[in-house]
Amino acid sequence: MIVGNRKDFGEILEKLGPARRVLVLGCNECVTVCGAGGEREVGVLASELRLCWKKEGETFDVKEHTLERQCDYEYIDQIRGFVNDYDVILSMACGAGVQYVAETYKTKLVLPAVNTTFLGVTIEQGVWSERCQGCGACILDMTAGVCPIARCAKSLLNGPCGGSSGGKCEIDNELDCAWQLIVDRLKEAGRMDRYEEILPVKDWRTGRDGGPRRRVREDMRL
């Protein structure tokens, strides 16, 4: 899933400026699961705004609404009926959602309430960890199911480096060395012959180096 982190309340307040008619817009997908921008987080942020502005004696209108997704037009379209009652849309979706809402309602000020951080997994309730960087050319078959692009601090294709110590990375002694994990798993699976093979230089054109990406499946188009 896409993992995000809600912005500090102070930063949100500053971005809102004088706007007091605010639509806090959540997303029912990834940001719900990682506790950053689902219905509950919408409730918490809206409550914080109301308490803060009540304290200041201000007049305001804060509406809570959560869409199934903010990355599909048909869901974003569902707020068309009341979106003009608000000065600002405070989107709690990932960066993709914020942008699509802004693209849909061109005259509206759309502000992000969440910092989109990574593609990852739930390690345990309340803990998430990065697993993928969306490089566009997956090599997990070569690396025993551990991605060195996302999980090695240097994104090394042939590791580990000299900074690996006791299975941990030199940048953080709680961070597993991705290449240690790869070697351990290759050993367990009796596939150490794979380790002898040198991985070639990666073609980054499928990743961000090739510019913004787009995918088309002609058979699915209407």
Binding site: L51, K54, K55, G57, E58, T59, F60
Partner: peptide, 9 residues
């Protein structure tokens, strides 16, 4: 609670 009344809230 430092909450001040404002019209329309």
């Amino acid at each position: 609670l430092p909450v001040r009344k404002a019209p329309g809230n």
